[in-house]
């Protein structure tokens, strides 16, 4: 199908982009890599008056360190994230999960910032950034503000960004020394995760000292499996991990679609959490 008509702007600075967004009110869409937006436009599920192509704004692409924090430009592509040595060293979970996103051609064009701003709970990366306790930096007419990932994902396909804000970078605390694993369950290679589990585990003395578990596609937003996280503290082997993981679906509200029922998703969340944590903890 064919996208509806729209005006097009290609700002060269963040400030210009923000101004364009502010002028357009609710009627603009940000175009980064376009791998989420273009299918929406083609299926005529979105009708923006203005598309603001931020893809060439300098300085929004690449990864740098800021003390104990990794700063990833919003326009950094999936392809780059997977291969970036800093990401692999300090946020291996993000690299591993990104490698499961879509396919190589989409990963060449799609960006981390785009995936997060799209706020699709079935996308792999929102739950990962949530598990990483990441922060998202938005630029708006009033300047910049930093939003914790826990507050960023507001509802289905809805982020905390206001229409005049642009996501410019993602900050994640370095997870050096944490074990990690992204467990994705999908029916065919191309399909969305029925459920995904992003696990980060810090071990001390052979026990799990701390665990963070992000859930993909278990509700209208990505979620943390808080009850399981709490119960995982102190777990020292597969049996305690299994018991702790049995609470992974608490507080979730998974949906029904052609691939899975809520009940099955809750079951998967428990099983996959167990697997992801065991793998991340090196206990698997």
């Amino acid at each position: 199908m064919i996208p509806p008509a729209f005006e097009y702007a290609r700002p060269e600075t963040v400030e210009e982009a923000v101004r364009l967004l502010a002028e357009a009110g609710d009627e603009a869409k940000v175009l980064a890599g376009g791998q989420s937006l273009l299918p929406l436009l083609r299926l005529r599920l979105a009708f923006p008056e203005l598309v603001v192509d931020v893809g060439r704004i300098p300085g929004l692409r690449g990864v740098r360190e800021d003390g104990d924090t990794l700063v990833i430009g919003a326009l950094t592509t999936h392809h780059e994230v997977i291969r970036d040595p800093l990401v692999r060293r300090h946020a291996g979970l993000l690299a591993a999960a990104t490698a499961t996103v879509a396919d190589p051609a989409v990963r060449h064009r799609g960006t981390l910032g785009g995936s997060l701003a799209h706020a699709d709970p079935a996308g792999d990366l929102p739950a990962v950034v949530l598990a990483l306790d990441g922060e998202l930096v938005a630029a708006g007419p009033e300047g910049r503000r930093t939003v914790p990932a826990r507050e960023f994902f507001v509802d289905y396909l809805q982020s905390a960004l206001s229409p005049d804000e642009l996501l410019i970078e993602i900050r994640v605390p370095k997870a050096d020394g944490w074990g990690f694993h992204y467990e994705k369950f999908h029916r065919v290679a191309q399909s969305w995760a029925i459920v995904g589990v992003a696990a980060l585990v810090r071990r001390e003395d052979g026990r799990i000292a701390e665990a963070r578990v992000g859930l993909t596609n278990m509700g209208a937003t990505p979620l943390r499996a808080s009850a399981a996280e709490t119960a995982l503290a102190g777990a020292d082997g597969p049996d305690p991990v299994r018991r702790a993981a049995s609470g992974a679906a608490e507080g979730t509200r998974p949906g029904q679609d052609a691939s899975a029922s809520p009940e099955y998703r809750a079951h998967l969340a428990r099983v996959l959490t167990e697997r992801a944590v065991l793998t991340a903890a090196g206990m698997g």
Partner: peptide, 26 residues
Amino acid sequence: YEEAVYDDEGNLVSGSMADYLVPSAP
């Protein structure tokens, strides 16, 4: 993998290649 799924109103739920699971090489 594959099924053309309809809802109770008779709408095709598996209405695009994103929902109708044609297997790929892996």
